[in-house]
């Protein structure tokens, strides 16, 4: 069973630390997103990386549209992986929608995690009276259309075959292992589960010490959203990064690592 889960979610374990750090990737890519960040922690932590079913190097035959149309289904992947590795008291690091997926997992099994480090989190993406999420429903529908159009009778740009990389042969292997590859149905369901979710009510159920890493000028998780999370997660700290955009772990890994280390130094004995 455990071996099956590890294979299903393409689980990779590195590092030698006594404590564990679990990295969860966001919508749009896979665990490789973390590769500029995790090596900085491998001396102190055992590093656990995985792909959600349907993403990256996961076992696509395990994909279930009903399960992965709900963020709770993704949260079960985290629970499955952590339980397969018998993880307790780990530091959870989630990017984007994985922040909330980690929150859902932490509510169901609080003892799994000691701290939650959330990069660009949001509890709800769509605006409503009294809440700024950053998007109107029509924007998300348009995003789904843009994704659709990249799949219609045309070379699927996310497919591995076109990802030739002769200049950097060291990358070739991971690229042929389908880089960020997603089946259109998988991508559509993940996008819908992500952008139509509303997890504001779950925030009050988290008592873990939580770091909210808010980027400057993040379209997907604007400042108001970071402040909302900070206000509603009781034991949280909000850090605004100089990094812009939604992927500081890729665009500004040094700053991201420094902020994480700073927080951990203060909060983890």
């Amino acid at each position: 069973m455990n071996a099956e889960i590890l294979k299903r979610n393409n689980v990779q374990v590195y590092g030698s630390g006594k404590r564990t750090m679990v990295f969860a990737h966001g919508f749009g890519c896979d665990q490789k997103m973390w590769r500029f960040v995790w090596p900085a922690f491998q001396d102190e932590y055992r590093i656990v990386l995985f792909d959600y079913v349907g993403c990256g190097g996961s076992d696509l035959t395990s994909y279930n549209a009903q399960r992965y149309s709900n963020l709770n289904g993704f949260a079960e992947d985290i629970l499955d992986v952590c339980n397969a590795l018998d993880i307790q008291n780990a530091v959870f690091v989630g990017h984007s929608v994985s922040s909330i997926i980690g929150v859902l997992a932490a509510i169901k099994q609080p003892a799994l995690f000691s701290h939650l480090l959330l990069v660009g989190p949001s509890a709800k993406y769509i605006n409503e009276p009294g809440y700024v999420g950053g998007f109107e429903r029509a924007d998300i529908v348009e995003l789904l259309n843009t994704m659709e159009k990249n799949y219609v009778g045309w070379a699927n740009f996310l497919a591995p075959a076109i990802m030739k990389n002769n200049e950097q042969p060291e990358l070739t292997e991971e690229l042929t292992a389908s880089f960020c590859a997603v089946d259109p149905e998988v991508a559509r369901n993940f996008a819908k589960a992500t952008f139509f979710s509303d997890n504001r009510a779950d925030l009050a159920n988290i008592s873990h010490p939580t770091l909210i890493m808010q980027c400057t000028d993040d379209l997907i998780a604007p400042m108001e959203v970071g402040e909302y999370l900070h206000k509603n997660i009781s034991n949280s700290e909000l850090r605004v990064l100089a990094a812009t955009g939604h992927c500081p772990h890729m665009s500004a890994p040094e700053e991201t690592i420094a902020v994480m280390k700073d927080y951990l130094a203060k909060h983890v004995n």
């Binding site: 890519c29 348009e142 995003l143 200049e167 950097q168 880089f179 960020c180 992927c247 890729m250 665009s251």
Partner: peptide, 20 residues
Amino acid sequence: TLPTRLFYQTHIFPLLKLST
């Protein structure tokens, strides 16, 4: 456009960063 910005952040930028 806004959806393109979203798509850029979630797909294109990571792809560009990792695969050049």
